[in-house]
């Protein structure tokens, strides 16, 4: 199960993702990502300290957000990555791509 909470503070959007981001829940996040991109938000912070588990489907949605916001001239930052999600990002070498 995944919970999302979005907070807009000035130009910055903070998206907190909690729980499990996997093949079952990633489609829901994709809708949230679409909305953020469509609204032209350019400063995105993903707060992942309460993310317990991520799989390749979940990573794919985050990469999609990153690429689309970057294409619009914006930036996506990740904070709070830990445990299994952190290990997956390291394994895929995404920890060196995403500003943290």
């Amino acid at each position: 199960m995944t919970n999302y909470s979005r907070t807009d503070s000035g130009d910055e959007t903070i998206l907190r993702i909690e729980g499990t981001l996997d093949a079952a829940t990633a489609p829901d996040l994709r809708g949230v990502v679409d909305t953020i991109v469509d609204e032209g938000r350019l400063l995105i912070t993903l707060e992942l300290s309460s993310l317990r588990l991520i799989d390749s489907s979940g990573v794919g949605v985050i990469v999609s957000l990153f690429k689309r916001v970057r294409a619009n001239g914006g930036q996506v930052r990740i904070v709070g990555l830990r445990d299994q999600p952190r290990a997956i990002f390291r394994l895929l070498r995404l920890d060196r791509v995403f500003p943290t």
Binding site: D55, F66, V97
Partner: peptide
């Protein structure tokens, strides 16, 4: 799965990021 090429220019590295096909690699 091809991990990001960190030696490439930043924009190229970003555009080459894969959004899928990571499962077997993991």
């Amino acid at each position: 799965y091809t991990p990001p090429d960190l030696s490439a220019p930043e924009n190229e590295a970003v555009s080459s990021l894969r959004e899928g096909g990571m499962g077997l690699f993991i």
